[in-house]
Nucleic acid binder design. Structure first.
Lengths: 203, 203
DNA sequence: CGACACTATATAAGTTTTGCTATAGAATAC
DNA sequence: GTATTCTATAGCAAAACTTATATAGTGTCG
């Protein structure tokens, strides 16, 4: 189970279930996410297994917090997990399946609208990730060089989300171009080698 | 539930649970996947709900096949799903979490090894996707222009996987470069504006 | 002909994840 | 002063998903 190990990894610094949920809503969102109703029982399970220790802390702004922290056994388990090599889970993208099936609509306008909406969402996500990056590395290459070992690795991880989102936004643009091209199949091809075109309008 | 709708989408052409599993193992793998033990009960559920019809067919190489096909009600449900706009599920990448936590190891050699192994796996996946693409569009732009509406949309979907995988392979390369840079922090920066370097080895 | 691999369907058992609901103190808005 | 929102924990039901196992016909290799 990956969530168990991800919690172990996050609990180097002590934090509550609520803190972890907050982390998933912010920077960590590009690689994992979980609901509170999954986080709380998992924390309990990990403590029962002897990988975490908890204590209650008074809170200035709400009910008392139960703060968990990883112990030596938990660290051993974490190292075992990351030592087992990259874990490749199944990637699932419902929107790609939706796109696949849009041929049933028999007009490309719906596909265009779909891709535009998707582009907006992906682009918003990219913007968020770039914001997280500039918080981390703000002042250019010099700041990147002086990151702590932890932030260096977090930054590497963040770069994956940025590369991936940028690629997906570009994919949307490519798709929109292909759709336009298909809607006007008789248009001139830019800089084609054919000097005697036969399919051009208004030749 | 997405799997239900994905099965509805795939069952324009009649096929068995086994056929669908095969599709998930091949081209469709870059956007969804499911086990037989999840596919069979879902097909039954969809038939009970009146969205699919099934019949048994004799098979030349094994026990009789139960072949499902979407009906008009199933098509309506599918169109409703794709009309609701892009469904953005939670993306989960255990390997990015693993990378995040590798700072605990206090040496970058493990990180290098990890990224190299990951690069290999991602690159293999990319190769597979490019193979599927060339089966679909083999003979260049002309072949792309003459795709059926269905294959056109499938190709758009496939391009997402290709863009995304390519970006991830590039991310691995970038990460490996950053790691090297960090291991030799005193090396000359290429084409820097500083004409009087102070931190360069061997002058 | 027996072992093995492949095609095909099916179910049981268990895990993982989501969604909804309840409780409750503290801060903020109207 | 009441309503809403934020912080914080907890439990339950249902959905989604995985792993393991069972059955059975068919072809093939030795």
């Amino acid at each position: 189970m990956s969530l168990e190990h991800i919690l172990l990894g996050m609990l180097h610094d002590p934090s509550s279930g609520y803190d972890i949920k907050t982390a998933f809503s912010e920077g960590a969102r590009h690689f994992w996410s979980a609901e509170l109703s999954q986080i709380y029982p998992t924390l309990k399970k990990l403590e029962k297994r002897g990988w975490l220790k908890s204590r209650t802390e008074p809170s200035s702004k709400g009910p008392p917090r139960r703060v968990y922290r990883r112990n030596a056994a938990g660290r051993r388990e974490l190292l075992h997990w990351i030592g087992a090599g990259p874990q490749m889970g199944t990637e699932r993208f419902a929107y790609v399946a939706q796109l696949c099936f849009m041929h049933e609509l028999d007009n490309l306008e719906a596909t265009t609208e779909f891709m535009l909406e998707l582009r907006g969402k992906l682009s918003d996500f990219l913007t968020m990730l770039l914001g997280v990056e500039s918080e981390l590395t703000g002042r250019g290459q010099a700041a990147i060089d002086s990151l702590s070992a932890e932030d260096f690795h977090v930054h590497l991880a963040l770069r994956m989300g940025i590369h991936s989102m940028r690629a997906k936004v570009r994919w949307c643009d490519e798709a929109l171009t292909r759709i336009k091209q298909r809607q006007q199949p008789r248009a001139v091809r830019p800089r084609g080698p054919d000097k005697n075109p036969k399919e051009v309008r208004h030749g």
